[in-house]
Amino acid sequence: MPEQSNDYRVVVFGAGGVGKSSLVLRFVKGTFRESYIPTIEDTYRQVISCDKSICTLQITDTTGSHQFPAMQRLSISKGHAFILVYSVTSRQSLEELKPIYEQICQIKGDVESIPIMLVGNKSDETQNRELESSEGEAIAKKWKCAFMETSAKMNHNVKELFQELLNLEKRRTVSLQIDGKKSKQQKRKEKLKGKCVVM
């Protein structure tokens, strides 16, 4: 059976309500909404370039509550890169990332070769800020991962976040940009796909 080895899987973790889905939806669909719907598990697929060919970027948006430890372990073991999101308005949400980071270390072993991005979201909420960006940076240094502050609401640093994460991947070249030639092929493929097949 065909194995989808071509997929590059990014998993987004973080406490409930920090804006994981908002970041993902802002990136994938370019939309933002104020209302809150707790996520159980969603996965979005996008075509990106990888080692000069096309591959699928799979972004898995996980639940913020800790009710499915087995699901979490599976997501980690299947994931190639991780985004750990906290909200700059909640110190607690940064604390909650620690066990997740530890679990990634435990399952993946050598974390230094795995792209991990620590993300402080809601950077637009200056009034409610509980954490300075220096605090996030310090944790990122300790965890030997990259760090960024974002705002899904203001669309600040969202695309950069995903691009930066892919840049961290050293085992293959992955990029959001698809070079011209391939994208034409892709377009053609999509065009063909859109046509009805009479069996």
Binding site: A15, G16, Y36, P38, G64, Q67, A70, M71, R73, L74
Partner: peptide
């Protein structure tokens, strides 16, 4: 070590409590 915990999508059964954090 994961085999026991493997979650396959598309299968049935079982109960879980959903405790939403919000």
């Amino acid at each position: 070590q994961l085999e026991g915990n493997v979650i396959r999508l598309h299968r049935l059964v079982e109960t879980a409590e959903l405790r939403l954090t919000d």
